[in-house]
């Protein structure tokens, strides 16, 4: 193909039927008089034909039966709650807790940046961990329930640690 010939991508679009009729006619005329482009177009068509040697196979009858039986799974023909929504809720809860660690300590309590900085670091770690879990859960074909449980457990651990910290940090009752 020479400099004035259409780009290779144009020929791909032509064999895929993605070129308007008027433009297709121009390309066909060019292919008829340009040996290199004509050969390239023929090769592309030949590749398409070669791929077609592997036709569709029929679905095994047992698969059809098991697919139809899926409708029997949920009680009353209706599936259970949306697991994906729980995943989002668990992730949000974890994230909120992580963000909570960044909020400055209440007035009257001891501490300051010396406590806030480690908390912020911990929060960032948790955010990273949660983000990774959620990304993997959404991208991979794994059961969302497993990931929801994992994410929620990370959130619960964070919650427990934060509560323990706050319990020790805030003076109680008459001590205030």
């Amino acid at each position: 193909m020479k400099g004035r010939c259409p780009a290779e991508g144009k020929w791909h679009a032509l064999v895929d039927g993605e070129v308007p009729a008027a433009r297709a006619a121009v390309l066909h005329r060019h292919a008829a008089r340009c040996t290199a482009c004509g050969r390239y177009l023929a090769e592309l068509r030949s590749l398409g034909r070669m791929l077609e040697v592997c036709p569709d196979v029929p679905v095994p009858p047992r698969l059809t039966a098991s697919l139809l039986a899926l409708a029997d799974r949920a009680p009353g023909g209706r599936p259970g709650p949306a697991v994906g929504q729980w995943l989002v809720v668990a992730s949000l809860a974890t994230t909120l807790f992580a963000v909570r660690a960044l909020v400055p300590l209440p007035v009257g309590t001891t501490g300051g940046w010396d406590r806030a900085l480690p908390a912020a670091f911990e929060a960032l770690l948790t955010l990273g961990r949660t983000g990774r879990l959620v990304t993997e859960a959404l991208s991979a074909g794994r059961q969302p329930l497993e990931w929801a449980a994992l994410t929620a457990s990370v959130g619960l651990v964070m919650l427990a640690r934060r509560l323990a910290e706050m319990w020790g940090r805030f003076p109680r009752g008459e001590e205030r």
């Binding site: 679905v59 698969l63 098991s66 697919l67 899926l70 409708a71 799974r73 949920a74 599936p79 259970g80 949306a82 074909g141």
Partner: peptide
């Protein structure tokens, strides 16, 4: 894969 895809559709 077909089984899982249709199960997700059903859900």
């Amino acid at each position: 894969i077909a089984q899982e895809a249709f199960l997700r559709l059903w859900r």
